[in-house]
Design a protein around this nucleic acid. Structure first.
Length: 579
DNA sequence: TACTGGTGCGCG
DNA sequence: AAAGCGCGCACCAGTA
């Protein structure tokens, strides 16, 4: 592999008993090819990475990263064919799809997802797929062919700059996701256990509900006048409530909280405790926290809008009440950084609404809206803005939206246009080129049926409702999707900045677990608009500065030089508890 | 026994 | 009991 350099693309593929690598020049022409045995390819990748830092091209980043990270090898840049395929296949900015839109094996879920689906215990082991099964292609020839189609589609696009940025950011995100899993989130299992015991009561040895849960259940049943009442079955609980005169339509806490009856207080408390127990109780702790780390499975691009999803562990629902058990290792700190009002800022940038940008600059965006006089209070500004981005039509939120429309016409026109296109059955596209899915066949059929003269009122109403539903989806898609792009750019840039910080040398400050590359500041959590960095204490300030600089870099990368910033709420602490 | 749909909670 | 987007997950009930 002598001809590799920083401008190279190196495509990797599996062969029967090893790995084949092909060096492509910057224009995609293959220069050389070599095969390596299973025991040798990782060292070869490490050698080339150290020397040249090329762009690695592979079918599925998590599958390749896992063994590399296990060996302490970290890749700077990659092109994830599977993720890029999904973007380019659907993007309205791709004019000549070069065959990407034909159904193919590249539409298959990632190898990790396939393994999880198959119930395989080792998530990152290679999945043996026989040729008849539609699995993700793994051979180098398949990879090169797909890469070539993608390059052609990119080159043909009038917006190839944006799409290239999106594909690069998405791929970098895949690297981050793999590294986040390898690193894990530092988790104090003892502290978690203490909280559970304090709130739920002593954990019963022989199973069954903990003491406090049992006591509350008994109180609720007494108030219901039924010692055998089932509290966990919604229909049974509803009937029991009706029997004692609590005439609610559902058992949700919003509705219950408005009732006055002695059963309400213990019932709400009971629901709270049961929720904690089932979502993040001892079973969860035993399953998801090992060696002081919570290792969730992130799924980059798992949400239609481009946000990440998670699969297992509920990584994207880290409950506020447990944030305090996210604790840095001894001698280390957590840098907790989240973007203030990411989505409205993104909307201001996309729409070039200078009024909204002015309101956002250098302060709390919602206070800025108040000072324009559009609304009276910060709370109103917030629900009005959320209503505008989500498509609220009724209630306080819906009533306030027209005021924003008057004050920020360009921003509001952008989301209103997106909604109209969605209602009409069209597709909308994010700033960098991710396109919403087209309407389903059923949706289209319902709309066309409603236009027929024989259509019933019921059919017409349903068509209108579905159209409005879809309008709210496309309205939000452009904002949520572009916010996800900003966050990916932030993450990718931050990852590189952190990687440039020096590793710690003192062995007593080294992490308790994880690959050796984790001896420097590294990402430990990503949550839509927030990151947690785990860092040696001496580098905490530098890591925090890196988070700020990365946010500025992401803003410029996406939107150029605009008079708008994306300020971070940032704190350095031993735990991730919110103040 | 395995699935699907509904309900409810909590995260952004 | 959401109003108003996007998720994951647990639990129950009904069905195959």
């Amino acid at each position: 592999m002598d001809r590799a350099d920083a401008a190279s693309w190196i495509v990797l593929g599996r062969t029967g008993d090893g790995v084949t690598a092909a060096v492509l020049d910057a224009t995609g022409v293959e220069l050389e090819r070599a095969s390596f045995e299973e025991s040798a390819w990782i060292d070869e990748v490490a050698r080339i990475e150290t020397g040249h830092a090329p762009r690695w091209v592979w079918n599925d980043a998590p599958a390749w990263c896992a063994p590399l990270l296990d060996a302490g090898v970290r890749i700077a840049r990659c092109h994830d064919l599977r993720l890029a395929h999904a973007i380019l296949r659907d993007s309205a900015l791709v004019v000549d799809d070069a065959g990407l839109r034909a159904a193919s094996a590249w539409d298959a879920p990632s190898l990790a997802e396939q393994a999880a689906g198959a119930g395989a215990p080792a998530l990152f082991e290679w999945v043996e797929t026989d040729d008849s099964a539609a699995g993700l292609p793994t051979t180098i020839d398949d990879a090169i062919a797909e890469f070539s189609r993608q390059r052609a589609a990119l080159a043909a696009s009038a917006e190839s700059g944006r799409l290239r940025l999106l594909v690069a950011a998405e791929s970098a995100g895949a690297l981050v996701a793999a590294e986040l899993r390898a690193a894990g989130l530092p988790w104090d299992a003892q502290a978690h256990d203490r909280i559970l015991t304090e709130i739920l009561g002593e954990r019963p040895v022989g199973g069954g509900p903990p003491a406090r849960v049992e006591q509350l259940a008994a109180r609720v049943r007494a108030e219901l006048g039924d010692p055998a009442a089932s509290l966990d079955s919604q229909p049974k609980l509803l009937r029991a409530l009706h029997r004692v005169g609590v005439l609610v339509e559902s058992t949700s806490k919003w509705e219950l909280a408005e009732q006055r009856h002695p059963v309400i207080e213990p019932l709400l408390r009971y629901k709270q405790l049961v929720r904690l127990q089932s979502a993040n109780g001892w079973t969860w702790l035993a399953e998801w926290v090992r060696d002081g780390r919570f290792r969730p499975v992130y799924v980059p691009g798992g949400v239609v809008t481009g946000r990440w999803a998670s699969s297992g562990g509920g990584a994207l629902q880290l409950p506020r009440s447990l944030r305090d058990v996210v604790r840095a290792d001894p001698g280390w700190r957590l840098v907790v950084a989240d973007v203030a009002q990411l989505e409205p800022r993104v909307l201001a940038a996309m729409s070039r609404d200078t009024g909204l940008a002015d309101a956002a600059r250098g302060r709390d965006l919602y206070e800025g809206i108040v000072s324009t006089g559009a609304v009276g209070t910060r709370a109103e500004a917030k629900i009005a803005m959320l209503g505008a981005m989500y498509g609220a039509t009724t209630g306080d939120s819906g009533r306030l939206v027209p005021r924003l429309r008057k004050t920020f016409p360009r921003a509001m026109a952008l989301v209103d246009d997106a909604a109209r296109i969605g209602e009409d059955g069209g597709v909308v596209t994010t700033w960098l080129g991710r396109t919403s899915p087209p309407p389903s066949a059923e949706w289209t059929a319902v709309q066309s049926r409603a236009t027929e003269s024989s259509a019933s009122v019921v059919e017409e109403n349903r068509a209108r409702r579905w159209a409005r539903d879809r309008g709210r989806f496309t309205r939000n898609f452009v904002v949520q999707g572009t916010a996800a792009e900003w966050a990916l750019a932030w993450l990718a840039d931050l990852r590189m900045r952190l990687n440039a910080l020096p590793p710690v040398e003192a062995p007593d400050a080294a992490p308790r677990s994880g690959p050796v590359f984790l001896a420097r500041p590294h990402l430990a959590l990503f949550l839509h608009d927030e990151v947690i960095i785990h860092t040696p204490a001496v580098h905490a300030e530098a890591a925090a500065a890196a988070a700020r600089e990365a946010a500025d870099a992401a803003t410029r990368l996406l939107f150029g030089e605009i008079p708008l910033d994306f300020p971070l709420d940032l704190r350095i602490a031993a735990s991730a508890a919110k103040s």
